[in-house]
């Protein structure tokens, strides 16, 4: 049942797309998707950490003793998260402020640790890179989609590069419920429902 390399990459985009198919890493999904931009920023940061940690874990998989593997994985992940934190602070400060506490919290994003444990520690380098990229891009797409729905209906705009673009006409009454905390849960639940309707499962 060896998958081809393409399948390894593509599975993250639909079959195992987080957070819909793999219900992991929900916190950033709910918290940062008030605007499309935040969602994409968070997705890209997570993808970077995911790919880098997958690379390192895969390379070191024969060296790391299995008893302390989780601790080792977490240190590897934490290192890359620190890199992301410092880079964002230097080059994307407004976004860094908006995402705030959720950047350091990539460390505890179950998706990253989940992939390290379930995939990278058992597969070779190339496959792990593809897996990380697939899952990462899938995650970014989900965040962007959820962000787009919430922002479009909640405030009638779509934000790219810090400039909100007014999409809805002036008579549009923003559905602010979606921007607030309860709306995040409901929007994600309904999107999951739509995914279930479309999917084969």
């Amino acid at each position: 049942m060896a998958k081809t390399l393409t399948q390894e990459f593509v599975k993250g985009l639909w079959d195992e797309i987080p957070p819909f198919r793999l219900v992991l890493g929900l916190c950033p999904v709910l918290a940062v998707t008030k605007t499309v931009e935040n969602g994409i920023g968070m997705g890209v940061a997570t993808t970077f950490v995911l790919v880098c940690s997958n690379i390192l874990v895969s390379m070191l998989r024969k060296v790391i003793p299995s008893k302390v593997r989780i601790a080792c994985f977490i240190i590897i992940i934490a290192t890359f998260v620190t890199v992301v934190e410092l880079v964002m602070q230097a080059f994307a400060y407004p976004l860094f402020l908006k995402l705030g506490i959720f950047i350091p919290l990539i460390v505890v994003n179950c998706i990253v640790l989940g992939r390290a444990e379930a995939f990278a520690s058992k597969n070779n380098l190339l496959r792990s890179i593809l897996d990380g990229m697939g899952i990462g891009i899938g995650f970014t797409l989900s965040l962007a989609a959820l962000g787009a729905v919430r922002e479009l209906l909640g405030s009638g705009t779509l934000t790219f590069w810090e400039t909100p673009i007014q999409i809805m006409g002036p008579s549009f009454q923003p559905f602010t419920f979606l921007i607030e905390a309860p709306g995040a849960f409901v929007a994600l639940g309904l999107m999951l429902c739509i995914m279930n309707l479309l999917g084969k499962k």
Partner: peptide
């Protein structure tokens, strides 16, 4: 309803619970 089962309905319920804390 079938598509809403499990996680999906749980999230919607969480939303309503969140509304009460709101």
């Amino acid at each position: 309803p079938r598509p809403l089962q499990d996680t999906s309905i749980a999230l919607v319920t969480a939303g309503i619970l969140s509304l009460t804390f709101f």
